[in-house]
Write a protein that binds this DNA or RNA. Sequence first.
DNA 1: AACTTTCCCAACCGCCAGGAA
DNA 2: GTTCCTGGCGGTTGGGAAAGT
Length: 233
Amino acid sequence: MGRTPCCEKAHTNKGAWTQEEDARLVAHIQAHGEGGWRSLPKAAGLLRCGKSCRLRWINYLRPDLKRGNFSEQEDELIIKFHSRLGNKWSLIARILPGRTDNEIKNHWNTHIKKKLVRMGLDPKSHLPLGEPRDSNTTYTVLASPKHKIPPFQSPRTPDIADFFQYDRSGSSTMELVASKAEEHPELNLDLSISLPSHSTPATTRASTVHRTVDSNSNSGSGLWCLTGMEAIS
DNA sequence: AACTTTCCCAACCGCCAGGAA
DNA sequence: GTTCCTGGCGGTTGGGAAAGT
């Protein structure tokens, strides 16, 4: 019983990829395109699991990857969208061109979490640490299907990958996202807050908090969204 | 210099959803 | 309707690098 393994583990390499393996993978994908991950290792002459090949390509070898340090602007976007989407790294990754879900997830776990804690915010709820969740809280329940985060490829809704397409015209990503959010209120993208700057005292706290219940979520945890910030004097 | 601890990130694992048979 | 296959996702781990003692 049980699942069939995705590959013959006894005959596959694991761990860090060598330059030669990278070269083989890149050459194969350049020649045949992406996809067919299960058969790719054999076709490319790699002793790797197909999944491993896919991950290596997506997270490291893809030519459109940005890599390097995250900018403040990228951090802000990640925090904003995490407050709405939760740990939906793949969705958040679509907002940041050249960044992968894995990269964003790692960045969140190693940097942004700590940053939020330093700012006095709970990284999970985005609420001020120690703030009781049910007092002075505005709830916005988005239970009806039409309020679900739309599927990216749905013909009926804007494709978010396109929606957040990297803007090469010169306007900032934040401006672009803000304007797009205004154009598509049905996506319910509340971008009304900006992160406190580094100069903002750690006592900054949310003035209004909306709870967004994602009816898709099976965790039942819901998503917390800050819609206003004020500094405590 | 040697050792230990902490940090970071690439890679792995298990699960799930969607489509094909 | 059911089963199988594949691609994709989020959580977690392991090893190397950096920092600290």
